[in-house]
Design a protein around this nucleic acid. Structure first.
Lengths: 329, 329
DNA sequence: CTGAAAGCGCTAACAG
DNA sequence: CTGTTAGCGCTTTCAG
């Protein structure tokens, strides 16, 4: 910028004015400065600007996996809101590792993001207390924060799972298996709770063997499904706790001689084209992201209310797999 | 940091040494400094650090759509490589708008990213010349740069499409429709070229009506497909230019009274579970991203070779839809 | 082993 | 309308 000023024969501040489109510069001076800028290939150094202004116009997003088809639209939605507010997005995947979540969040804070959106991997977010105290607006999405009071935007996991399982029960199922993600993941627990509520509502017992929480690897999910389908009291339907489990169960079911009913949590891209279509409890990932980002920017614009917990509804999409009757047992 | 120094009763530089894990500090002094850091909730301001050091340890990624199931794994792969090199990732979606691509890329440059990975939306990247001259390593992925010499990591779109169409021809098809993305997108053109090559190899004519490039909206794709399926010489098979077109064509085909063969470019998550399974020409999006990121960091580590163009192979995955015979016409 | 001073590139605050 | 000065928070340099 110094060089530009020298070349254009003006003061530093004038260049600054031109670069930032501030008023108070003659057409002629502006032209001279612009020429110098192009000639020198100058671009404002935002690091220096940030240092001076205090605001970075950037937000950090810590999510579980950038590549997960459920989180990708959430990511995009956050980006769009950020863009509308003139902010850039820095993001990273925690890979469901609390330590990595922490590293990312703190790295973002060191970069002085204005705000932070976190899909928690861990359950203790007290490490963020100094940062929040220092003014980093923070919103949690998909799962609540642990150990601190903070904004959270969640899906109604309990209600959604309850409705999905009730749907299976309404179609005659009495023995329904639940396969979900690891129990330390908040949504996994909530969905299991929804399953138990629906079963209890119908006065149905839930033997331990019908419930399985754990890693969503195809191997584990397949083994658990096969276990639940064998033995004395095989299940006649599955309720699956997220998109990855659903995909594996679909592959398991496709190889069975008899039909097994299925309702999955999370929608899938081609769910309507399978036969039968896959009945799901859908959450709106983009809306989750948008809501969180909007809340974040409201905070950044000075909203000082107490931390809020927003819960978004889920939607049961009926496509066939959840309406299959129980086979003879 | 000043505050920390004051509180710990040491000099500024000593705090800096502790914060950065540099040697030359007594155990005792270090402890005092650490205490002050925790007490004050101090975190190093990376903006200031960057200003001084010149390197930001961050890379920018401009892609088309963060939420696209094809680009999401690429995004994740880039993130992993960046992470391995201690760098953060800033990213944004161009939404296939050249102006937006430019804005994002230049905003990243203003933040002084060390390197830039771009999935081009536009065809003229001369706007990056000053940045590259100023030292921003730049790698293009999925599509080549326009107007400048730069590294590019691409899939073999021409070869992949050619193989996919040849597969349909080998299964008896003579009238094959091609529906792809807008012609200004490089990969769309290359895939069309592959289609034409395969048709020419087999001595088959290609009337204009069998080829359609344009927006990948369901409405347009559906209309074009229905047009190609009607009239005097209806097509008996489709080759689709990317995942979004394939998804729509699958919906169109599902509603037809007679089967129509299909080979799609890009794999789909549930492609194996449809009946018939969807035969596709798959690219490895994660590998594309990984390769580009590794090349980028090689540049950042000082590799000074001439710009390289890396072309990754595609893979034909046979699942059923591409092996359907042509119906009677 | 420790610290003081200079300066990275920019903008806020004030003169002219 | 334009320019000067100070200083954002850190690291580099060099001297204790």
């Amino acid at each position: 910028m110094k060089d530009v000023a020298a070349r254009a024969g003006v003061g530093l501040k004038t260049v600054s004015r031109v670069v930032n489109g501030e008023p108070g510069v003659t057409q002629d001076t502006e032209r001279r400065v612009q020429e110098a800028i192009t000639a020198l290939g100058f671009r404002r150094n935002d690091s220096a600007r940030v240092l001076r202004k205090g605001r970075t116009s950037s937000v950090g997003l810590v999510l579980e996996d950038l590549a997960d088809p459920f989180y990708a639209p959430l990511n995009r939605a956050v980006e769009e809101v950020a863009r509308a507010h003139g902010a850039l997005l820095i993001n990273g995947s925690s890979a469901e590792d609390p330590e990595r979540e922490r590293e990312l969040a703190l790295a973002f804070c060191a970069r002085r993001v204005d705000g932070l959106i976190v899909i928690p991997a861990g359950h203790d977010h007290r490490y963020l207390e100094p940062e929040i105290a220092a003014g980093v607006a923070t919103v949690f999405v998909d799962r609540p924060a642990g150990g601190i009071a903070a904004d959270a935007v969640l899906s109604d996991s309990h209600g959604g799972a309850r409705a999905g399982v009730a749907h299976l029960i309404a179609h005659g199922h009495r023995r329904i298996g639940f396969i979900g993600d690891r129990p330390r993941i908040h949504t996994a627990g909530e969905r299991l709770r929804g399953y138990r509520t629906a079963m209890a509502d119908a006065g149905l017992p839930v033997p331990d063997g019908w419930v399985s929480l754990g890693p969503t690897t195809p191997e584990r999910v397949r083994a658990e499904a096969e276990r639940m389908l064998s033995g004395e009291h095989p299940v006649t339907a599955f309720f699956t706790g997220n998109n990855r489990v659903t995909v594996t169960i679909l592959r398991v079911i496709a190889q069975l001689p008899h039909p097994v009913a299925l309702v999955g949590f999370d929608d899938l891209e081609l769910a309507d084209l399978l036969s039968p279509g896959v009945t799901v409890v859908a959450q709106d990932a983009a809306r989750l992201g948008r809501t969180a980002a909007e809340l974040l920017f409201r905070r950044l614009d000075g909203a000082e209310e107490a931390p809020r917990r927003v819960e978004l509804p889920t939607r049961l999409i009926v496509r066939g797999s959840g309406e299959l009757p129980p086979g003879e047992s």
